[in-house]
Design a protein around this nucleic acid. Structure first.
Lengths: 191, 191
DNA sequence: TGAAGAATGTGATGTACATCACGTAACGAT
DNA sequence: ATCGTTACGTGATGTACATCACATTCTTCA
């Protein structure tokens, strides 16, 4: 399945679009390829785009005191990522995005997203649906972080995304869970 | 300012609406009044509505093991609250919502929201904007929870919402920050 | 292919916070 | 006014996790 098919399958599952609309929407996306380890957004950058993952795996993360990293999101195929705060408020990036594996993405600028949302009601509906899902997922993660200990969160994560176990180095999983790599290592060696 | 004015000022700051549209949109909201302590949504309920706060203060919270409470959100005037997960997925509530003070709200059903979003493109845009803001706030809180200790989070919260200090009992602030009331008490007596 | 860096494991120790226990003060209903 | 309930403070102790230190294995690439 090529990039166009992946994106549009994802969209038309939510909203019906005519063939011309499909082509028109797709014409606002720009395909990009990144190598493993390559940066997509770096702290301090101007943020103009959001990214739809076609293949590969990205991470959105925050660096505290130039030392500690916390991962906001792993972005797998059909997920969207960016520094949404900087993108929507037109401020500089405080979040970094880079590639855990080689990745193929489709990017769309803030202006173009707003343009096609304005022009096609169904597209606006799609983006509302998408943000809504992200919001609900984020609230769930907040609760999990407050309610559960690290071991429970680790098991939750692997139950939800089993692919991560082999795809992503353990210290990144630790940075997502909000513990150190040492603690994570002890968690599963304890069982 | 009456309930209608509060709601519509809030909306037209984001999207322009004609006078007829304003009346039409408002006709889908139902005014409700709650007393301090009264429940709006209880765990296990069917969730049909979301709530726009006109005056007063609500909280959305989760109860763990029938013992520990964690607060997802304080809902102040012009904020929206509900169990969005249950509302959008049409499942039973896992989250509770109740009133910290007497409160005046406007509620709208899931069907009516989707209906006016379908009928009026600007309204769909408004709800996308609103959810987007919630999503960004939620991501910020996630990062703060992972990066900062309880004292820093306490200061952040009071800097952002100084009204909370006098309005909300301290044990609820603790439940929002994700610490026990004892720890919170020690945090500010230490300074 | 071999050397450097990245990822991982594991012990010793430190610390932020939870838990338990008990006290006092403020509030709300009869 | 008073009695029960809720809010709040504070000490003693326990615990999950961080930090530091060092060893081992796995990757990458010149």
């Amino acid at each position: 399945m090529n990039a166009k098919e992946v994106l549009l399958q994802h969209i038309i599952k939510i909203v019906p679009l005519s063939d011309e609309q499909i082509d028109y929407v797709f014409s606002h996306f720009k395909p990009m390829n990144f190598k493993k380890g390559q940066a997509v957004i770096s702290e301090g950058d101007k943020v103009d785009y959001e990214y739809f993952v076609v293949s590969g795996c990205l991470k959105a993360f925050y660096i505290n005191d130039e030392i500690k990293m916390h991962i906001l999101q792993f972005a797998m195929p059909t997920w969207w990522t960016s520094d949404f705060c900087a993108l929507y408020n037109n401020t500089r990036a405080t979040i970094n995005v880079d590639c855990i594996t080689d990745a193929e993405v489709l990017c769309i600028s803030n202006e173009d997203r707003e343009k096609i949302c304005r022009e096609i009601h169904e597209v606006e509906h799609f983006f509302r649906w998408r943000t809504n899902r992200g919001y609900i997922a984020s609230q769930k993660r907040l609760l999990s972080l407050m309610n559960n200990d690290a071991k429970t969160r680790y098991e939750e994560l692997l139950a939800m995304y089993p692919q991560l176990y082999n795809l992503v180095p353990k210290h990144l999983i630790a940075a997502y869970l909000g513990v150190t790599r040492e603690t994570l290592s002890r968690l599963y060696s304890a069982h």
